[in-house]
Design a protein around this nucleic acid. Structure first.
Lengths: 148, 148
DNA sequence: GCATAAAGATTGCAGATGCAAGTGATTCGG
DNA sequence: CCGAATCACTTGCATCTGCAATCTTTATGC
């Protein structure tokens, strides 16, 4: 009744929802961050200059540009992000990860790693986890430039 | 800097976001359904009696009970779901998938399968897709009783 | 049995998000 | 060059969602 690709795609959504749900509570309790705010900082951190234009950030996060505008505002207020203009193109307003933001991200990444370790730590062989990440990378090509 | 479990978990979120984003547009355009409405019907369909209490549905979908209440209301109005009481326990209000809902779900599943096939159809060996689904199942144990 | 605790569901309120419209800046065609 | 189209961003409005409070019903302790 259900073919294998369908099952895999379904499991992908369900597994991600489950993981995200657990993460969400912990993030807001420990760091006062939403998962999307965490991902936003992560995207910025994994760029050469720790900055991205709003539309590019929206594209990478699969959200609308207005969401970026509204997400960034309070994060700028508390110093996690800053806003910077492009000298060549006055339309652009870069979102920049500050040093404070980098620290916050590092803290959040530690929490994230703990949860990831809990999920993939028991019952998974090392090469299985690697193969799994590789397959996920094929599902969303170019989703994130996971540096070495 | 980033360990393998962390990478895998990160890729899981990113891949699911990407897949869900593509699916979301197609679902609302073709079927007038949100991804969550689709998943709600799917969860109901994969139960013995095509019904679930609101709290149980909330637990399986990782959303709050109030979200279930508010999601179900308009879907009942258009005949996709119906509401049923438990004769033993007057507190329970089951959400039931109607015949109309089953048809709608079948249509949506076809769209879903098309997208899943697009993602996993090219460059994936059959046993790879199966292994992938199996690993995802380990990430979210018991997330969905994917019937045979 | 009865008072209390607990569970299921709904509702008020606040926050998050998308779409469409609006503003200002840049690019393009003639 | 100049007007039109395009682009980046923001804002108004509607929708979705969660949390906390509330109501009703059931379970528990004495």
């Amino acid at each position: 009744m259900t073919d294998q690709p369908t099952r895999s795609a379904l499991q992908l959504l369900l597994a991600a929802d489950a993981f995200r749900a657990g993460l969400s509570g912990e993030f807001s309790a420990i760091h006062g961050l939403s998962v999307n705010e965490f991902l936003m900082m992560l995207h910025l951190d994994r760029t050469e200059a720790r900055r991205l234009s709003r539309v590019e950030l929206a594209r990478r996060m699969h959200v609308s540009a207005s969401t970026i505008t509204r997400m960034a505002a309070p994060m700028e207020k508390i110093g996690l992000l800053s806003r910077e203009a492009d000298p060549r193109d006055a339309r652009l307003a870069f979102v920049v990860l500050t040093a404070t933001g980098q620290e916050k991200l590092a803290d959040a990444l530690a929490t994230f790693a703990k949860r990831a370790g809990y999920v993939f730590g028991t019952g998974w062989k090392e090469e299985e986890v690697a193969a799994f990440a590789d397959m996920l990378g094929r599902v969303a090509p170019g989703a994130m430039p996971l540096e070495g």
